[in-house]
């Protein structure tokens, strides 16, 4: 689909400014593109390459390494069921099989109505609450089959928890006001921060106070 919208270009610029080198912003920027379109479009990758000053191939190289970036449209809700060891011990695989039956798709697949994509994922750091899953990276804990079906029904109808569509992670972004910024350390700046030099241990008897 598309390049970044003018509003998102502004967001992108603010993100890039937080890093000593623009390329460091690439992963957050790919998330921004995914938030805009629900997936990372080719045009968006080209646009990011321009913003960061690298080639589109480099953007693709990074993008393709990370599991969260989808380069084709996926469902509005990504259902990630954990089947790793702690969850497996308490029924994670059975939950995944139930999800397959309920949704009529295999892991990696998307329902015909475009609402759900199912994935069989690795540990999501909720191991004591097994079996568990994430909907667009928001957690659901200790689910049985009935809980799963109720969750799907809710997502189809009211979405009572207001889970945003696939692509949106934190809705609250970091924002550093210009007058509060210490000044992101550039790799080329070899000076020791003044506040640190001033506080170095004094070897001679003290002449001036720190």
């Amino acid at each position: 689909m598309s390049r970044l919208t003018p509003e998102n270009v502004e967001v992108a610029k603010e993100i890039i400014a937080r890093y000593p080198r623009p390329k460091s912003a690439l992963i957050p920027l790919l998330h921004l593109a995914q938030e805009q379109d629900g997936y990372v479009a080719d045009d968006a990758m080209e646009h990011l390459a321009e913003l960061v000053g690298i080639t589109p191939a480099e953007v693709l190289g990074t993008c393709s390494f990370y599991e969260m970036f989808k380069r084709e449209p996926v469902g509005k809700y990504m259902i990630n069921v954990c089947t790793n060891i702690s969850c497996q011990l308490l029924g994670g695989e059975e939950l995944l099989h139930h999800a397959e039956k309920t949704l009529g798709i295999r892991p990696g697949g998307t329902t015909d109505d475009g609402l759900f994509t199912l994935e069989d994922v690795e540990c999501i750091a909720a191991c004591t609450e097994a079996p568990c899953l994430q909907v667009n990276y928001r957690y659901k804990y200790k689910l049985d089959n009935a809980d799963f079906d109720a969750m799907i029904e809710d997502l189809r109808t009211t979405n009572k928890d207001n889970i945003p569509p696939h692509g949106t992670l934190a809705e609250q972004r970091q924002h550093i006001p210009a007058d509060k910024l210490a000044g992101i350390g550039s790799p080329e700046d070899t000076t020791t921060p003044e506040w640190f030099s001033k506080r170095l241990p004094v070897e001679e008897p003290k002449e001036e106070n720190a």
């Binding site: 937080r18 890093y19 460091s24 992963i27 957050p28 790919l30 998330h31 390494f65 990370y66 599991e67 969260m68 970036f69 992670l169 934190a170 970091q174 550093i176 007058d179 509060k180 910024l181 210490a182 000044g183 992101i184 350390g185 921060p193 003044e194 506040w195 001033k198």
Partner: peptide, 21 residues
């Protein structure tokens, strides 16, 4: 950020996030 607790010490903390690996 700038002048932490009113001192001359200035330090930025930047939130970065990964993408699944």
């Amino acid at each position: 950020g700038k002048n932490i607790m009113g001192t001359d010490v200035s330090i930025d903390v930047v939130l970065h996030w990964g993408a699944g690996a």
